[in-house]
């Protein structure tokens, strides 16, 4: 019984980490949207900033991946 409750808590925690994905999605969407609106205002400057776009997306995405990592750790390591 006690083990079942611990298991349940584990699954609830893992499920909650999926909320982190939403944050990463907002961040990536924000970066991509702002890049697009900037690129539409000044298309000639857009190609030069593509590297920065990918770096920014990578940073935002990394945080979503951290939540995934926490989920995995809870699921298998704890």
């Amino acid at each position: 019984m006690e083990g079942d409750i611990a298991e349940m808590g584990k699954f609830i925690g893992v499920g909650l980490t999926a909320i982190g994905m939403g944050g990463a999605a907002m961040g990536v969407g924000n970066i991509a949207g702002n890049y697009l609106s900037g690129a539409l205002r000044n298309p000639s400057a857009a190609p030069g900033q593509q590297a920065m776009l990918f770096v920014g997306i990578a940073f935002a995405e990394a945080l979503g991946i951290f939540s995934f990592l926490v989920a995995l750790l809870l699921m298998f390591a704890v």
């Binding site: 990578a58 995405e61 990394a62 991946i65 951290f66 995934f68 990592l69 995995l72």
Partner: peptide, 8 residues
């Protein structure tokens, strides 16, 4: 962790 996490 970014690289390993994304691949995993």
């Amino acid at each position: 962790i970014r690289l390993a996490g994304a691949m995993m």
